[in-house]
Computed example of a mutant assay.
Amino acid sequence: MSEHHKLTEPFTDRNGHYLKAECESCFGLCCAALPFAASVDFARDKDAGQPCHNLQSDFRCGVHTDLRQLGFRGCTVYDCFGAGQKVSQVTYAGEDWRQKTKTAKQMFEVFPIMWHLHELLWYLNESLNLEVTHTIHVELQTALDETEQLTLLSPDSLLKVNVDAHRAKINLLLLQVSELVRTEARRKLKKASRTFNRGADLMGAKLKGADLRGANLRGAYLIAADLRGADLRSADLIGADFRDTDLRGANLAEALFLTQAQINAAKGDSLTKLPTLLLRPDHWLSQ
């Protein structure tokens, strides 16, 4: 493994809670709490708080192996950063919403808040495991501790958390992390990195084989872009939209702030290099 990422398995927060989805420990919260609309990603509409018609009594999906074929591609992309099991097993101590129907609505409202907090924990844990960020480790550790404490609040208290304000505060630190990582990349390359404005429109862009090491691609729209064989090491990819992005043969092994959901939304192959903690999606094999 490179010096850039030294994260260990399993990827947990300091309290030992997985920051990866563990569906067998969840009460199907993403299948019940979240809404979706009929589109290329979902075959039908579903309101928030309405359990999906494919959700079984044991909280498993009845069509899990056929989701893409049945028009539910969006389900195969989603990742909760472990928020589902945190809400199910910690916040509500293992009491599911079917047993405690009076708390179902509250649990469904708590889940998205926990998702946001766990996403921030993912980024903060990654940041703390980068040697180049040693100058701000104290600040990062403090932010991580504060975020973890929020995840352990009671349901009533979680509903009062100002997630937007907390995310904005954390983002200032993540911007510092990005600058440290990309500056180090430029120093090693001895040249300037590609520059893009935040939220750059790169939909369908022809970037095959592009050297994007250390590039700032925060929030970039890379929908259906051709990134075959591109080098994205040390590139900041937080919030980048990878829907149908062609990543075959691309090098993302040391990409910054990349998530499983982004990878799940893209197209790739056995030659695509991924960060150690991200899994190669099963559907890549059939594309």
Rank of each mutant, 00 (worst) to 15 (best):
G28I: 01
D156I: 01
L144G: 03
W122S: 11
K6H: 14
K100S: 14
T272K: 09
N129F: 00
K188H: 10
T8A: 15
L150Y: 01
G94H: 08
D45F: 01
F11Y: 11
L207R: 11
Q50S: 06
D96P: 07
D241Y: 04
N125I: 06
E119N: 09
Q69A: 10
S88A: 15
A220D: 01
S178N: 07
V77P: 11
L153E: 12
F59P: 08
K190S: 07
E139V: 00
Q50I: 03
N251D: 13
A205L: 08
D236R: 07
A143G: 11
L7H: 07
I263A: 09
D156P: 12
I113W: 02
G214P: 11
L121R: 15
L212E: 05
Q141F: 05
H134I: 01
T245Y: 03
I136T: 05
Y18W: 07
F11T: 12
F27Q: 14
L124A: 05
G94R: 14
E126F: 02
L174H: 02
N15I: 00
T276R: 13
K208L: 05
T8N: 13
W97H: 14
D201P: 09
T276K: 15
I263C: 08
Q56D: 05
R68H: 05
S286N: 10
G84E: 10
V177A: 03
L258Q: 13
K206Y: 03
E131A: 08
H137G: 08
L237E: 09
R218Y: 04
W97L: 04
K191D: 05
C31Q: 14
L120S: 12
S286R: 14
P112F: 00
P281C: 03
G209A: 06
L128H: 02
S193N: 12
C30I: 08
E22M: 15
L117C: 01
R218W: 03
L189H: 06
Q141Y: 01
E22G: 06
A104C: 02
H17R: 15
S2Q: 11
K100Q: 13
I170A: 12
D66Y: 01
A253L: 07
A215K: 10
P281V: 01
R182Q: 09
G62T: 06
R98V: 00
K188F: 00
F196L: 12
E109G: 04
H134K: 10
N125F: 00
Y92W: 11
D269I: 07
F42G: 07
L152K: 15
R186A: 11
Y221R: 15
S193I: 03
T142L: 07
S57F: 00
E179P: 04
V63A: 13
R228A: 13
L212M: 06
D96Q: 05
W284M: 04
F242T: 03
L128W: 02
A185T: 02
H118C: 14
A93V: 05
R60A: 04
E148L: 11
R73P: 11
I263M: 10
T142C: 10
V77D: 12
L159E: 06
L55Q: 08
S157L: 08
H64I: 02
A266Q: 06
L207Q: 08
H118N: 15
